[in-house]
Amino acid sequence: MNYLNALDVLPAELLKEIQKYAGGTLLYVPKEEAEAKTWGEVSGQKKYFKRRNRMLINKFKYGITVQQLAKEYCLSADTVKKIVYSRKDSSELVFCPDINSAKEYNDNQLLEEWIHTYLLFERKNKVFSDGLYKETRYYAGPLAMPLSLLVRNSGPEEDMKWQVNGEVFECRVESWREKIRNNTILPPIIVGYTDGEFEINCNSPLFEALLRENVTYFPVIMWCTSEHDYTDFMNKYSPYTEFVLK
Rank of each mutant, 00 (worst) to 15 (best):
Y3M: 05
V9G: 00
E13Y: 06
K16F: 06
K20H: 04
L26N: 05
Y28E: 10
Y28V: 08
E32N: 05
A34E: 14
A36N: 09
G40I: 02
G40S: 03
E41A: 04
E41R: 07
G44R: 10
Y48K: 07
K50H: 15
R54K: 09
F60Y: 15
F60D: 07
Y62E: 05
Y62N: 14
G63C: 01
T65N: 09
L69D: 01
A70F: 00
A70C: 03
A70Y: 02
K71C: 08
E72D: 11
Y73K: 06
T79M: 13
V84K: 05
Y85C: 06
S86T: 03
S91P: 08
C96E: 11
C96K: 14
I99G: 00
N100A: 12
K103L: 15
K103E: 14
N108K: 08
N108L: 08
E112V: 05
E112N: 10
E113P: 00
W114D: 00
F121A: 02
K126E: 13
D130E: 08
G131M: 03
Y133W: 11
Y133E: 15
A144N: 12
M145T: 04
L149I: 04
N153K: 12
S154H: 11
G155A: 06
E158K: 10
E158I: 13
M160A: 07
V164F: 04
E167H: 08
E170D: 09
E170P: 01
C171T: 13
E178P: 07
K179E: 12
T184W: 15
L186K: 02
E197N: 15
I200N: 01
L206H: 02
L210C: 00
N214S: 11
V215T: 01
Y217S: 09
V220F: 05
V220T: 07
C224Y: 02
E227L: 15
H228P: 02
H228T: 10
H228M: 12
D232G: 06
N235T: 14
N235R: 06
K236M: 07
P239T: 00
Y240I: 00
K246Q: 12
